[in-house]
């Protein structure tokens, strides 16, 4: 499998990264080099093999469903490029 310019443009849109027309061409080449290389996994017989979901055998811990933390609004907003009235501010989305 390999990618073309349209596919890369689609992936870039999904990833929300602007890729200019100029960059698109070289990105196609770069991605195909990597995809060609990982293609060798096709040689491995994985019939009946379970996909790994946890590298160390452990059950996810449970805790009581109680509020134990929070109340950090100002700290959460402190690093925001733009915060107003106690909220994150973004460019207008509704006309």
């Amino acid at each position: 499998m390999s990618v073309d310019k349209d596919t890369v443009a689609k992936i870039a849109n999904l990833a929300r990264i602007e890729v200019s027309e100029d960059e698109l061409e070289s990105t196609v080449g770069e991605l195909n080099n990597i995809l060609d290389w990982v293609e060798q996994l096709g040689e491995v017989n994985t019939d009946g093999v379970a996909a790994m979901t946890s590298v160390v055998a452990a059950d996810l811990p449970w805790r009581e469903d109680k509020i134990t933390d929070g109340g950090y609004r100002d700290q959460v907003l402190k690093n925001a490029p733009q915060a107003e009235h106690g909220f994150f501010a973004v460019p207008k989305v509704i006309e």
């Binding site: 499998m1 990618v3 596919t7 890369v8 992936i11 870039a12 999904l14 990833a15 990264i17 990105t27 770069e30 991605l31 990597i34 995809l35 990982v38 996994l41 096709g42 491995v44 994985t46 093999v49 379970a50 996909a51 790994m52 979901t53």
Partner: peptide
């Protein structure tokens, strides 16, 4: 580069061929 590769291998239609396959090889 890695975000784009990752987005591709997780995207609809390619997830099984790449990501699921890799997680199986990881088990091996």
């Amino acid at each position: 580069r890695r975000i784009l590769i990752g987005t591709y291998v997780l995207s609809a239609g390619y997830y099984d061929a790449y990501y699921l396959k890799a997680q199986k090889v990881r088990t091996l």
